[in-house]
Amino acid sequence: MLLASIVVLAGIYALLGSGFVIIYKASRILNFAHAEIVMLAGYLAVSLAVAIPFSAASLLAVLCFCFVLGMSIYAILIRPLAGYSVLSAIILTVAVGVLLNAVGVFVWRGEMEVIPFGWRTYFSLPGNIRLSSIEFATLGIVTLFYACMGLFYRFTKIGQQMRATAENPLLAAQRGISIYRISGIAWGIGFAAAGLAAFLLGINYAISLQIGNIAVAAFVVALIGGLDSLLGTIPAAFIIAATEQLTITYANPRLGDAIPFIIMLMVLMFKPWGLLGTKEELDRV
């Protein structure tokens, strides 16, 4: 039972962390508004699930909304700040988060909602593990997402250009890639990942104002895995989910909130670029 919950939580953490990573890779900006995007997307999914009974269609609508939101936030707010300090960009994303949070609470009143998920059975796996259909679907969706992202980066033209831009933006610009367009698409994908994670959170647990805390833990996941490594989020998510669940079960829940940050501090001390991240030349603040 514990193992199953760890695996499911790890899957969601990985998905949340991948949103950070995709955005950071493309534009070197840590998106502090991620938690609020997750919340907003979650509430939107709740409303849509009531309006459209077919859950795949509502999920698709949420993803599209998130993609467009990400692109437009990049185009309207982040892009004009190109060339300013890292701090400006961070504060900007924080402020965007505050604003989106206000919008979300204003529209949805901040109540606790669950996204209905029609299909409900249990699977018995060897080793006395029972997996509900929801958990099964969650793991399936996360795996599918990672497979799609892997294929996208590896084989598509835009994916290749995104990798090229992440490595060497100047040369990429010289070779005719429009960096702003590529970064905009990356923001869109990052936000869509957040939307997908929100959907999974909604079917597994519930959407509420506290969902931000989960997204913050995911931020730790991104850092431990390496801010520019998509693959790194998977082991990092398992580490965080396992330690957190074990502390909550066997020690105390308040320590459970702090434990990801203790791990993050240790990683920053000994391996600042994360498990699989590449060392980067940092700009000044």
């Binding site: 290749q160 250009q161 990798r163 090229a164 490595e167 060497n168 100047l170 005719g176 890639i177």
Partner: peptide, 22 residues
């Protein structure tokens, strides 16, 4: 331009490098 340093994308394969130009 063929720049002096950092002239190829090191994390991409040769084939991908050549496919990058738009």
């Amino acid at each position: 331009l063929v720049p002096e340093r950092n002239k190829v994308f090191e994390t991409l394969t040769v084939q991908e490098n050549l496919a990058v130009p738009t």
